[in-house]
């Protein structure tokens, strides 16, 4: 009897997985791995990295919880950043998006000090290509965002996951972004797994009510005041606002 039940459960699970893969997905959790090539991201450190013979790639892990109205992207609590001397050279920001109102609260991680600001989710102009690949067992299409004259961002999205979500607050495609990369490969994000499950507001572990949430221009002024205008601008462009 137990064996029969076990077999039946197995088929039910398989069927539901199969159905989940075929059917459209409205809520769940995506686990992302980010690989950062320190030399490509900070070319000025290449001699330093090579001299120490250190591992130039840093792996970080993030989770993206979502349903049709809300999404939350944050560093994973379960899987830690890879060990290495450069693991502090990468950012761990969090993004809480209200998908209905198209607004966002971003928590910037500046070496352990956190800054929160709110804004309207920035719109991006995406170009769609005919390239396709599979990521985490989902068929994905390739899209390109021309960030500026010299920077191109590649994204692979699947229309099978309905909400417009993605890592690092990169959204605007008709589905979930499961792959994200800079043109030079300095930062590459790939979904490792997608867990289909209902997500409620209470499942999101992000408490910001007691903290000051700034407006965007307030934040920029604060950072410039802390670092100086030149260094502040560089910090914002290369690290804090790289994906905006």
């Amino acid at each position: 009897m137990q064996r029969i039940l076990l077999t039946l459960s197995f088929f039910v699970v398989c069927f539901s997985c199969f159905t989940n893969v075929c059917a459209q997905i409205h809520s769940g959790t995506i686990l992302f791995e980010r690989k950062t090539n320190i030399i490509k991201k900070y070319p000025e450190l290449s001699d330093f990295v090579n001299e120490f013979g250190a591992d130039k790639t840093v792996s970080d892990y993030f989770t993206l919880q979502f349903n049709d109205s809300i999404s939350f992207y944050s560093p994973s609590n379960d899987i830690q950043t890879s060990e290495g001397m450069f693991n502090s050279f990468t950012e761990n920001h969090s993004y809480l998006d209200n998908l209905n109102h198209k607004t966002r609260i971003t928590q910037l991680d500046m070496g352990g000090e956190y800054f929160l600001f709110s804004e309207v989710i920035p719109k991006k102009q995406w170009k769609i290509t005919d390239s396709k690949r599979k990521i985490a067992d989902f068929k994905c299409r390739k899209a390109i965002w021309q960030k500026n004259d010299s920077t191109r961002i590649y994204a692979w999205f699947t229309e099978e996951i309905i909400p417009e979500i993605g890592p690092e607050g990169v959204t605007g495609l008709p589905g979930a972004i499961l792959g994200l990369a800079t043109e030079n490969g300095s930062m590459v994000y790939f979904a490792q797994s997608v867990t289909v499950q209902p997500i409620d507001k209470s499942d999101i572990n992000f408490s910001y009510k007691k903290k000051k949430v700034m407006q965007l221009n307030e934040l920029i002024q604060k950072i410039n005041a802390l670092l100086g205008e030149k260094e502040g601008k560089e910090k914002l462009e290369k690290e804090l606002f790289y994906w905006r």
Partner: peptide, 9 residues
């Protein structure tokens, strides 16, 4: 220019 202009289901 391959620009995504809209989508629906």
């Amino acid at each position: 220019d391959s620009l995504l202009c809209g989508y629906d289901r």
